[in-house]
Nucleic acid binder design. Structure first.
Lengths: 171, 171
DNA sequence: TTGGAGTGTCAACAAAGCTGACTTAAAATG
DNA sequence: CATTTTAAGTCAGCTTTGTTGACACTCCAA
């Protein structure tokens, strides 16, 4: 790494710059989750259940990969079985998610959103996409490319694959 | 909004693109917090206390804005007094943070890291900066600019100010 | 057919958020 | 000077979401 002294590649790597990047990441993530959080809070107001981010994540990824099994979802979400199971339990009891016993392997349960579940998923991802869209618009296509590049480089290697590997898993 | 058909500004705003951005954000944030989490887990192994992300955040922002008062920290972290207090309590008991009565306004407590606290802060931010640095290096200066632009656009407006307003608050 | 190994469920517990009510001390205001 | 407001801290009690460990069901291969 023979960086030219005073070159941009050196300048933008000062600890202060990195620190600012860290904080930007922190605050941006807060903004990123704020809108869905608000919707869920609203939705919880009159109901018995109390959905949070964990429910959001589950609904999101089941929506993205219908027919996925529990184990797969565990990998993606990076939580323990019980944590996910509690969330899935309530979602199933409330009729937002249904699980079907696998045809080939009857140990597996394949997960799907019901129509109600899909509605919630749409409502949540709608506001999140809106924020993402606004941010993308404000920053421009060139910036978006950079944004994605840095994010990709920031994930763990194994997750990088998962991010592009979310496809329909229906039988 | 008269976007040219097929123009880049239309293309990169498909729902699929936005969805991928959302997931990239999710996975990247996981990577972003993974290293400090590991350090804390390691550190908890032999000790009585049990530090988590909440402690990390507190130590981080006290390190960034030494002498900040409790209310200020509450704003930045976006949690309740109770929640923060529990964390500060343990950090002070363990001698990582100290609070000094304000000179001008003696109702206020100003928060500082002790030497031990600063050590922990360095250890945590060190690995986080390392990941950020690697990601920045891999993506290049142009991408970093874009990354920051999108993040800034994604935060709530009030947080945008806080992000650049973290300066030493010592008396 | 039996003994792993894989998948999912359940019980019990911990961390870290939350609300609301209250106290203490100090400052600001009338 | 008396009252009100503000900053901080505390208590009690709750929820979400993470953890570990034990267990049941199913598959597959020896």
């Amino acid at each position: 790494m023979n960086e030219p002294i005073g070159g941009e590649s050196l300048l933008f790597l000062t600890d202060e710059q990195l620190q600012q990047g860290i904080e930007a990441m922190f605050f941006a993530y807060r903004g990123f989750t704020a809108d869905p959080d608000r919707i869920l809070e609203e939705l919880n107001r009159d109901r018995a259940h109390n959905y949070g981010r964990a429910h959001h994540r589950a609904v999101h990824f089941i929506g993205r990969a219908p027919g996925t099994n529990v184990n797969n979802l565990l990998q993606i979400l990076g939580v323990t079985k019980q944590s996910l199971n509690r969330v899935l339990r309530t979602l199933m009891d409330d009729g937002l998610v249904e699980s079907k016993v696998g045809k080939n392997d009857r140990r597996e349960r394949h997960l799907y959103l019901t129509e109600t579940g899909a509605e919630l998923e749409r409502a949540l991802s709608e506001v999140q996409r809106a924020r993402m869209r606004d941010a993308y618009r404000a920053a421009g296509p060139e910036a978006v490319r950079g944004f994605r590049q840095v994010l990709e480089a920031m994930m763990d290697a194994d997750l990088r694959r998962k991010n592009t590997g979310l496809r329909d898993k229906s039988e």
